[in-house]
Amino acid sequence: MSVKTLTINGKTVTGLAGTSLFNTAWEAGIRIPRLCHIGGLSDIGACRLCLVEIEGRPRLHPACMTEVEEGMVVRTESERLHAHRKLIVELLFAEGNHVCAVCVSNGHCELQDLATSLGIDHVRVAYQHPRRPVDASHARFTLDLNRCVFCRRCMRVCDEVEGAHTLDVAGRGAELRLIADLGQSWGTAESCTSCGKCVQVCPTGALFAKGSAVGEMTKNRAFLQYIVTAREKHEWIRK
């Protein structure tokens, strides 16, 4: 497989052909903000936080879905990118009902981390306070759509790793919602194996294990790397 040489933020890096800019940057120690991307699952380019500038191209490109090319000159930070990322995160806070103070994931939330790292101290767009349901019908887990950012990690891990495809989305635009099987309550979804992978990959407190109190829900994603390494490289190692 051929190797491509490119520069990211002035640093010369190399990546195998077919590798994404996001992963190549990651290997080189360059962190790009992201929400929908999670190592080990396919990418969908939905959150738009990982957009980067590529010299000679007028548009912004999602690093998670852009393959490395020879001689690319990439910038992952700029005033414009920062402004976009900030506004995207503000939009997410305003769109749902996050109410961090009373969230099971308070303090262990990727959305909060993003806000902090982007220097957000308040949300300029109007809070929408939508009425979204909470599905607590599953014996072990709860889906609180108030805190869902529609990154679809749960859907993808359920489909691509567990092979169950219990979760999916329905509706569109602001009416988008996550559903189990054919839109029934999760507890009655027969395809669900109760493996809990969706809970672990969820960046916010939208999916959590029952019995968690405020700030208690921490997520463990090590399993994903383990399974994906095993599947792709046939190596059964825990890093």
């Binding site: 976009h84 939009l91 635009g173 602001a174 009416e175």
Partner: peptide
């Protein structure tokens, strides 16, 4: 556009709502 946004990406899904308001 707000009504027709598919809702996949954040800028359009949430941004059209705000711009409309």
């Amino acid at each position: 556009c707000r009504d027709e946004s598919c809702g996949k990406c954040v800028p359009c899904r949430a941004g059209t709502v705000q711009m409309h308001q």
